[in-house]
Design a protein around this nucleic acid. Structure first.
Lengths: 149, 149
DNA sequence: ACGAATTCGTTTGTACGCAAATAAAACCTG
DNA sequence: CAGGTTTTATTTGCGTACAAACGAATTCGT
């Protein structure tokens, strides 16, 4: 007999929005962003800004496009993100002498200090997002999500 | 010994962006939206618009805020979504006689026809999103995502 | 019944996310 | 080395997503 749930179709006329992966991913992402804002309240930082800062810390410096690839933002998106972080003095934004098309991005001293202080809160965000799951399920979810993209 | 992966922290100074659930959810959601656009190419419809239409078909009619709650959109967001769908003649948007604050929303005839034709493509979208996973993993992922929100 | 609190919808402002067009610089190839 | 292609960054336009403030309508407590 056909169940209402499951991913294998069900009855011909059946389409349960709440069971579709796209819909569930949208809601899960919304909740993740909400948790981020809650934990980093008052920091005035978005998840994408945080990602850009962390990756810039990891790499020690990158071009705008390259950083975008590392953090999953296209050129139009990363442009605004970098502009806002540069305006706040968290990123040093210099022309690349070797390739005048590129902007060489680095964390400023203030940026480096900020990231260092924020990594701990980043861990808290991840823990809170995964809070509804049992430990082994958290690893499962991470593993499955990695394989989706 | 501590591994580089896993959700239980790892070494004190370690924060691997690619292992964080928020970052992975953002990427997965981006990919899901891309698949949606690909499958429904030329339809000029977004995932949220699709969700609103489907839910309006399920319920047979709802107020704007109520529909927003069902589809995970806040008032400001659902407002624009409904306006665009109404402008395109897919939704009938009437004043509620019982409560003059509310707008009573229903699928128009064109909207009902469209949704009926689109449900099949919706199934295709879901299948394509879950394509990288084995069948039992697809059910696992859906189950875990449901518990996150 | 009346004032307070709540709900509904709108509007404004900020920030992703992406398509498409543009300009400048670097590259490749003949 | 000249001409075409590719890469980098910017800009415009549209569509979510959400906070905050607002007016209008309803509901609730007393």
């Amino acid at each position: 007999m056909a169940t209402t749930h499951g991913t294998d179709g069900g009855a011909p006329g059946t389409y349960v929005l709440e069971d579709q992966p796209g819909f569930l991913l949208r809601l899960a992402h919304q909740r993740a962003s909400a948790v981020f804002q809650e934990v980093l309240e008052g920091r005035n930082l978005t998840p994408t800004q945080f990602a850009a800062l962390v990756k810039l810390g990891d790499t020690g410096g990158a071009s705008q496009n390259h950083l975008g690839r590392l953090t999953g933002m296209d050129r139009a998106t990363i442009q605004g993100v970098i502009r806002r972080l540069t305006d706040r003095g968290l990123i040093d934004n210099a022309a690349d002498p070797n390739d005048r098309r590129r902007r060489h991005l680095m964390l400023s001293t203030a940026g480096r200090d900020l990231v260092e202080n924020l990594l701990c809160e980043g861990q808290t965000v991840s823990k809170r997002i995964l809070d509804p799951l049992k430990p082994f399920e958290r690893k499962q979810l991470i593993r499955l999500l990695r394989r989706l993209s």
